[in-house]
Design a binder for these strands. Structure first.
Lengths: 220, 220
DNA sequence: TAATATTTTTAGATTAGCCTAAAAATATCT
DNA sequence: AGATATTTTTAGGCTAATCTAAAAATATTA
């Protein structure tokens, strides 16, 4: 019994929430991420629990089983490979690909995804800098720092961004930030936690909200 | 209000039936093609009729409106472009691609399909020899003859096959028939309507069932 | 044309996924 | 601890798409 698209999306949501927060995942968090009601989440989680994809304790929360983790990782592998295809082969830009990949990730064919991987040259990272899990679900870990956590004077190179929606990425395009952009922390404002960075000889002010979504590899 | 995947599949089925038979399409024919019950077809056809995609007369039959025809043609365009991608870029063979393309054709992105078309070099025919409709739904018509209708002594070159399921195409692979294969009609057996053809210096017996699925361009 | 067979539609039920409103459980605050 | 607020679950209903069984319409055939 294969998973429905909806079931797959729930698993991915649980995976993503568990990735940032730790411990078990709350009904409300899932509802928020899926833009649906808490009642619907309870329904679905029960179903996924019966099928063995999650461990569920009423009023407490949800955790992925090994089975659920594998399913979620495969989905993420597919999503990131398709995003890579769209950008590297079809010349889409990084802010355009999320929604299309969201559909493509549900295509059911193991063979297809292996051939796509090969076709793309077994890429390790997608256009947003996220690691692409291999067939076994393992992916490359990198030494990365959140921009907002860096100290004045430190330098780094952008290696990934944590959110992928079009408006956010368009904003980054506008201020000249993309994957591999080198930058230096010029100053940090305490009162609103904003950060000023030097990008290509110009100083840019980043709100805390933005600065905490950008991941860097320190270069000094 | 976009069409659901199921609605799209019904429109495609009606289109394909109307293509071979002529006049209006019967409930039973649709049910057969969709492997579903006649009752389900009646339900769905009513819905598509309300939405303006088909003209429906109870107990008589169904016809696509202009709107329905456009929707079906776009779906076929997408299907055939994806099949072309799978074969020409990912090295799938012609008998492996139908089911995957059946899923890919439902991906909703006009931009994606236009870029894919360009990426593939605006192909005019898919791996089964079927014409790929352009953005407006127009496609190249060719002078083609059904193998079963050819006379003894006539020669031709395979340009397309009418069905695409794996077992049929595997059978063609086995007897050495693919797109562009040249052949000559050696003899025709009246009692079972089978045809013997010369392919690459060997005589092959084709049942009527098989011979009526192969389309040729006459070369003599 | 009347009887029979076939096709199509209707009626009524089922499942997945969603909703709102109310009830139950847990958390927080004084 | 008791009152209040928040979170989560339950209850009941809705829609899309499906099914089977029965009824209605059309086609066929003696």
């Amino acid at each position: 019994m294969p998973l429905s698209q909806t079931e797959e999306n729930y698993l991915k949501a649980v995976y993503k929430i568990a990735e940032s927060d730790q411990g078990s995942v709350s009904t409300n968090a899932i509802a928020k991420m899926m833009s649906t009601s808490a009642a619907s989440v309870t329904d679905m989680i029960k179903r996924l629990s019966e099928k063995g994809y999650v461990d569920y304790v009423k009023y407490y929360g949800v955790e992925l089983t090994t089975l659920g983790k594998t399913a979620a990782t495969i989905l993420i592998r597919k999503h990131r490979l398709w995003e890579t295809f769209l950008v590297s082969q079809l010349d889409f830009s990084w802010e355009e690909v999320h929604d299309i990949a969201e559909q493509l990730e549900h295509i059911q064919s193991k063979e297809l995804i292996e051939r796509l991987d090969k076709y793309l040259g077994f890429p390790k990272f997608d256009p947003h800098g996220d690691p692409i899990p291999n067939t076994e679900g393992k992916f490359t870990l990198r030494n990365q720092t959140i921009l907002a956590d860096m100290a004045i004077g430190e330098q780094g190179q952008v290696i990934a961004v944590k959110i992928h929606d079009t408006p956010f990425l368009q904003h980054l395009n506008q201020i000249g930030i993309q994957i591999n952009t080198p930058l230096r922390i010029v100053s940090k404002q305490d009162y609103d936690q904003s950060t000023t960075v030097l990008v290509e000889d110009s100083e840019i002010l980043l709100s805390h909200k933005v600065a905490s979504q950008i991941l860097l590899k320190k270069t000094s």
